[in-house]
Design a protein around this nucleic acid. Sequence first.
DNA 1: ATATTTGCATAATATTCTTAGGTATATGGG
DNA 2: CCCATATACCTAAGAATATTATGCAAATAT
Lengths: 112, 112
Amino acid sequence: MGANNLYKGSLTTIVLKLLEEKGRMYGYQITQEVKAISAGGVVITEGALYPMLHKLEGQGLLTVETEMVGNRMRKYYSITRNGKKEVVDRMAELEAFIRQMQTLLNPRIELA
Amino acid sequence: MGANNLYKGSLTTIVLKLLEEKGRMYGYQITQEVKAISAGGVVITEGALYPMLHKLEGQGLLTVETEMVGNRMRKYYSITRNGKKEVVDRMAELEAFIRQMQTLLNPRIELA
DNA sequence: ATATTTGCATAATATTCTTAGGTATATGGG
DNA sequence: CCCATATACCTAAGAATATTATGCAAATAT
């Protein structure tokens, strides 16, 4: 975990879930939205985000549309049907992770 | 996440916390204990565990004592004072992570 | 004018883990 | 006795995910 207090592997879940909720976002917007929602607690670095967006697109979990805003490019990402399936899986994994960690870390009675 | 349903970075927390609770364990014992507590849900691979134990020892978070049991070696690890401090930090980080994820992932009201 | 923000991107490196081996002793079942 | 499995340590190659450090360019604020 870096300054983000995030475990490696959780970023994909965040991005997919956000896109599922918001419908359509571009990269920079995602970084700002996550920062805002988390009150500055989670900062997505661009060096992690952009390669991941490309990867998710390559996997068919996202689609991309390029738009010009003024003279500048924006690449809007949307979640696909497969992406939505992936969100369900990832949310289940996250819940399982939290349960496992609680089981392992909560002070528990000595068993024999 | 692998078959473990664990995020990368969480293994250190598990090992340190377990050693804080149990006081003194050897590597193989840790793998078995974690498997037992999690009902088979979390399997620590030795390829991850042993290098990590060496690393934590190098960082002064663990100490090691080698013992012979019959004709076979066991390396018992104990947590140090600094290791206990690290546990406190890591537990706080985990709780922060869970809170952040809940904030980011829970369906929430659209804010303008 | 100039610095900051917006918006995209990649490359080098670090961390953490899986996979796939290797060595050797101990033990239980046939 | 033989052999599979369990115990107990270990490392090396590679994958996955992230940080850090850049680079480019347009827009906006000071």
